[in-house]
Design a protein around this nucleic acid. Structure first.
Length: 582
DNA sequence: TTTAGGG
DNA sequence: CCCTAAA
């Protein structure tokens, strides 16, 4: 009591448990390792979607609700719901009209079994930087999505001449319903977001925040559009040992760049046995605001990722720009491997290189007439992307992110991977390229028939400012090694989420994470109480360090202050209760 | 299943 | 985020 007087945080005050423990229910993650996952074949699906935007919103609509809960005048849940329904409706309509809505490039690679940790995620300190490594979701509630995913068409690709080819192209159009179905789920919790007691108006941050909070789900829901056409081409060439020393030196660079943690895995000589695999680290949020350096693989890709069949249409103001990305080009890879290495190890090595590049915070770059478009905040029109675009103006590329810190390494040089140390090495340059073409078409239906657009069998509706609705979806087949789980993708907390977390902790205190979860993140399936606990931990840490040392999306100082205050308060409470019995 | 902490 | 001992 005295304490509550002493501490005034500007909210209703800390209170005792508001939610009976009895309310506990099945929540949180189940046992991860038991999930049946296939570790034989995995694929990266790179697809451009638009629908992403619509679908994404559903699951995270609860975040918007934070705002609406705080300020009923901004917009109501019902409004949002309706809006979402409408948007979804139109998207589904699009689906029906065009059949296939996205091109999916799948690269199925034999996975190595085991695990490697991403470089930037180990706690503490650096977990705010960068973004997702990918990884499939593991919660039970995600099973649905996974099943949808499993229906996707895929290609078993290989590197010509180096790895025996085993390509398969299949079609499966049965997943549309699943998309729609899953996309609707998010609404259930529209009204479940807790009311706040502070009365403080959080408002809805900027669009970026909103996007941040929603984008994370894109891959969960959009990847099921059946591919219409898939291309996969690897051009491989052997490079002799006598190659200039440049590459040798770069070998080290690569090794620095990809310091695989060999902890439990990445045993290049042994055959596949080990724990969770981390291959297929491919999912990422292209809308991440972190920018990529000039110098990276993107340059190598620029020339190859192209737009095909981009259409020009005039007289349609305000129309959505529809894009179809048939494929992406993957950054060039270099591999260093002993001549005595086995084909199997070569395969694993290549797999390693591919997954590493894809897994290490890959970004999507946008090229307009060969120039990178960096400003994420610009609209398509402002950037010059419209129906009036001429062919081949727009391009996409995948670019590793880590290049920024190693000026010399990755600029004009591809990455290397090595499997041997002092042995004679064969350098294998793998231009792992997927032919890139992209179609841009007008959204006007009547224009479809009379031009090349008709060839564009896969259309993707792109609402303005949604060039970033690109996603690479890790993909794997069902059945297989059950002991195969992947690290979840990193999903940095948005300010909005932090706000909600702080709010809940202020009220419930630390140590009741399940309740916090239920109270403030009940709708956010991807946030477990453990996540919240961890986030709180990092928040406290963040609040204690200097602003200069903080990374990631800056958290308002006001929030951090509340974190410290609440943390201090509840720490005291905890001590008190512990001392009481004595 | 949840908590609590170290990794 | 992951992993786990404890509760």
């Amino acid at each position: 009591m005295m304490l509550q007087k002493k501490v005034n945080y500007g909210f209703n005050g800390y209170k005792g448990p508001a939610i009976p423990k009895a309310s506990r229910s099945i929540r949180g993650r189940g046992t991860i390792k038991k999930k049946p996952e296939n570790n034989q074949i995995q694929a990266f699906e790179i697809l451009a979607n638009v629908a992403g935007n619509f679908l994404q919103e559903s699951e995270n609509s609860g975040l918007d609700n934070v705002a609406s809960a705080k300020d009923p005048h901004t917009f109501s849940s019902a409004d949002m719901k309706d809006k979402l329904e409408d948007e979804r409706g139109s998207f589904k309509k699009d689906l029906c009209e065009h059949g296939n809505c996205s091109e999916i490039v799948s690269v199925c690679l034999p996975s190595r079994q085991g695990k490697h940790e991403n470089l930037s995620s180990s706690f503490p300190g650096n977990h705010l930087e960068g973004q997702g490594q990918n990884i499939l979701e593991r919660e039970d509630e995600r099973g649905k999505r996974r099943r949808v995913n499993e229906k996707n068409t895929h290609i078993k690709g290989s590197f010509e001449g180096l790895i025996e080819p085993s390509c398969k192209v299949s079609k499966d159009c049965s997943s549309e319903n699943n998309v729609a179905k899953s996309s609707l789920e998010g609404h259930r919790h529209l009204d479940s977001f807790p009311n706040t007691s502070s009365g403080r108006k959080l408002g809805r941050d900027d669009d970026e925040n909103l996007v941040n909070s929603t984008q994370l789900n894109s891959r969960d829901k959009i990847y099921s559009t059946p591919p219409d056409m898939q291309k996969l081409k690897y051009a491989s060439s052997l490079m002799s040992d006598e190659n200039n020393s440049r590459e040798n030196s770069e070998l080290e660079n690569l090794q620095r760049m990809y310091p695989f943690k060999k902890r439990k895995f990445f045993n290049q000589t042994s055959s596949s046995t080990s724990d969770r695999g981390s291959q297929c680290q491919g999912t990422f949020d292209s809308s991440d605001t972190t920018r990529v350096n000039d110098t990276n693989h993107g340059t190598a890709i620029e020339e190859s990722s192209s737009i095909v069949g981009q259409q020009v249409h005039s007289g349609s103001k305000g129309c959505n720009v529809k894009l179809s990305i048939k494929s992406f080009k993957v950054p060039e890879l270099f591999i260093n491997i002993p001549e005595t290495a086995t084909i199997g190890s070569l395969k694993r090595t290549v797999m390693e290189a591919v997954t590493t590049i894809l897994g290490n915070e890959l970004h999507v770059g946008i090229l307009l007439q060969g120039k990178k478009v960096r400003d994420d905040s610009k609209t398509l029109i402002q950037t010059g992307i419209s129906q009036d675009d001429k062919r081949h103006r727009l391009g996409f590329m995948l670019e590793p992110r880590h290049t920024s810190n190693s000026p010399s390494s990755c600029n004009d040089n591809p990455c290397f991977l090595t499997t041997g140390s002092q042995q004679k090495l064969s350098k294998i340059k793998i231009e792992s390229c997927v032919e890139g073409d992209l179609n841009v078409v007008s959204s006007q239906p009547d224009t479809y028939a009379n031009n090349n657009v008709s060839k564009c069998r896969t259309l993707v509706a792109v609402p303005a400012i949604n060039m970033e609705a690109l996603a690479v979806v890790p993909f794997r087949r069902k059945s297989g090694n059950p002991d195969f789980a992947q690290r979840r993708i990193r999903r940095p907390f948005s300010v909005l989420e932090v706000e909600a977390l702080v709010q809940a902790v202020e009220k419930l205190g630390t140590g009741r994470w399940r309740d916090v979860k239920q109270r403030a993140f009940d709708h956010a399936k991807h946030r477990t109480y453990v996540d919240l606990k961890d986030k709180w931990k990092t928040l406290v840490h963040t609040a204690r360090i200097s602003p200069q040392q903080r990374r990631g999306e800056p958290v308002p100082q006001e929030l951090l202050d509340r974190v410290l205050a609440a943390h201090a308060y509840w720490s005291q409470q905890q001590c008190k209760h512990q001392l009481k019995p004595l």
